[in-house]
């Protein structure tokens, strides 16, 4: 194990070292419960790369048999490995979360509702006025000769809250609307992976500008009054454990999330003013 002094070389030495072709020797430093391993490499572009790995050293009290096994010498393929995990064989993978499937029945209900609606619509006569979208032939449209009819043709998507006779009909556009394959009945099962992802994102909010001293408990206290929560993620510094200033909250229901946004955005919390918005997907392509 190299002594700590080796690392504290003066900057001038380091500059000289960089000038040469030799790479600095890898170092291992133990300080306040962390092991810092520094390695130097030349990457594919022939540039020098410094790799710093920080390991937390933990002491655990275990039964005797386990403690004895911890002192066993390495054998086989890794008989030459140093103590501690070898980065070639042990990798800390990306964060993964357990996706909870809580609102299963709710989902089914929604699907059924949508299906029922479609079925109900299917029973009705498939006649649609090209002018006002009403359920009658275009030639028999009562608004045939008025300006309103002309206006309707232009904006193909009448706003549901629009005024005039077309407004009531616009709420049932399913009469002859194209249904994408993914939304058709029976397709829901195939889509279930990506669907879940989307649902996850839709009920998630992002809270920013939290103070450093915020803890998980504080955050939970703040957000739980708006409704049931699926997941809370408070970004924390790996080493100090202090809050990094933002958090993601996954609510069970979207309306609760919306409520939380409207109530908490601009709300003063611990001498700071919170910024709360919908969580945006990390990469929209997925």
């Amino acid at each position: 194990m190299p002594a700590a002094e080796e690392v504290k070389s003066s900057w001038a030495d380091e500059v000289e070292l960089e000038g040469g072709t030799t790479l600095p020797a890898p170092t291992e430093v133990y300080e306040n419960g962390f092991k810092v391993v520094t390695e130097y490499k030349i990457n594919d572009d022939e540039k020098k790369v410094k790799i710093v790995r920080t390991y937390k050293i933990e002491k655990r009290i275990v039964s005797k048999s386990i403690a004895v096994r911890k002192t066993w010498k390495k054998f086989g393929e890794c008989s030459n490995d140093k103590p501690g995990p070898n980065p070639a064989t042990t990798i800390v993978a990306e964060d993964v979360y357990m996706q909870y499937i809580t609102s299963k029945e709710e989902d089914n209900k929604q699907e059924e509702d949508a299906l029922d609606k479609l079925k109900a619509l299917g029973d009705k006569t498939v006649v649609k006025c090209r002018k006002c979208n009403g359920e009658h032939w275009t030639s028999k449209c009562p608004w045939k000769d008025t300006t309103l009819a002309g206006g309707k043709i232009d904006d193909k998507k009448p706003t549901p809250m629009g005024v005039g006779p077309g407004a009531g009909d616009a709420n049932k556009p399913g009469v002859s609307k194209y249904v994408p394959p993914g939304m058709r009945d029976g397709a829901s099962k195939r889509m279930d992976g990506p669907n879940m992802q989307r649902r996850d994102d839709q009920t998630a909010i992002r809270i920013a500008n939290l103070s450093e001293n915020t803890t998980d408990a504080d955050l939970e206290e703040l957000v739980k009054r708006f409704g049931p929560i699926v997941k809370i993620y408070l970004a924390k510094d790996k080493q100090t454990g202090q809050c990094k200033g933002y958090a993601y909250i996954h609510y069970k229901f979207k309306c609760d999330a919306a409520k939380a946004i409207s109530m908490l955005n601009g709300h003063g919390y611990d001498h700071l003013i919170l910024t709360v918005d919908w969580s945006k997907p990390q990469n929209p392509n997925q």
Binding site: G76, E77, C78, D81, N86, T90
Partner: peptide
């Protein structure tokens, strides 16, 4: 080659 690992930190103890 079967392997054996420490489950706590993922360190490889050896291979048979």
């Amino acid at each position: 080659k079967p392997n054996v690992w420490y489950s706590l930190n993922g360190e490889r103890l050896g291979s048979f």
